[in-house]
């Protein structure tokens, strides 16, 4: 084991309109580790993710982000432009590795939809498109909010396998999920 922690959180809490969402959460994520955030609906999983990302500010406690290559994030909102074709959407994602990109377009079976407007794709297909961001990441921390929702079994497996490989490459992953998945991870329960 190494002691290279990417995320260290101490006693963080969050209040909205003076109502406590969660409080005194402490956790850390080291290189090559995965953290699975569990909790009921409305327990603040997504808010916690946003705090880790640095978008929302916690109302209490400290959180430290040591990642040097940035974060790749995929949440409920997948940053896909409805009025653009799949090809233009990929252009917007600014993915540089063309070879890898083509490989994953084939794997995810997206090739034949390249000229289709994103609004005409199904939810699952849009999600696959958004996943390209994850598959072609070059950061050391991957954060996913409910990544398996809306995916078919096949794609779920592809994603799990990919994430496991990333862990072996010493990258770290933080995710929330209702569906149990084959990723070896620490569990953080909030309620």
């Amino acid at each position: 084991m190494n002691n290279n922690y990417l995320i260290v959180a101490e006693n963080i809490g969050y209040k909205i309109n003076e109502n406590k969402l969660f409080h005194n959460l402490s956790f850390d994520v080291a290189e090559g580790e995965a953290l699975h955030i569990c909790g009921d609906n409305g327990s603040g999983k997504s808010t916690l993710i946003r705090i880790i990302l640095g978008i929302t500010k916690q109302t209490k406690g400290n959180i430290k982000n040591n990642s040097s290559h940035g974060i790749t994030y995929l949440g409920h909102k997948n940053a896909i432009k409805n009025y653009l074709t799949l090809e233009d959407n990929i252009l917007l994602m600014e993915l540089n590795d063309k070879e890898e990109l083509n490989k994953y377009i084939e794997i995810l079976n997206l090739r034949k939809y390249m000229d289709v407007i994103a609004a005409n794709l199904s939810f699952g297909q849009q999600k696959k498109l958004a996943l390209l961001r994850i598959f072609l990441n070059n950061s050391d921390l991957i954060i996913l909010d409910e990544p398996f929702v809306g995916l078919d079994i096949e794609t779920q497996d592809i994603l799990s396998e990919f994430l496991n490989n990333q862990l072996k490459m010493n990258k770290s992953i933080i995710y929330t999920s209702h569906i149990s998945c084959q990723i070896e991870s620490k569990i953080l329960k909030i309620n």
Binding site: L53, Y73, G75, H76
Partner: peptide
């Protein structure tokens, strides 16, 4: 509005802050 609703702003914030 569109960039806000579809999450583009979040992606930009994570990248460049």
């Amino acid at each position: 509005l569109e960039d806000f609703n579809d999450g583009t702003l979040e992606q930009i914030m994570i990248k460049t802050s």
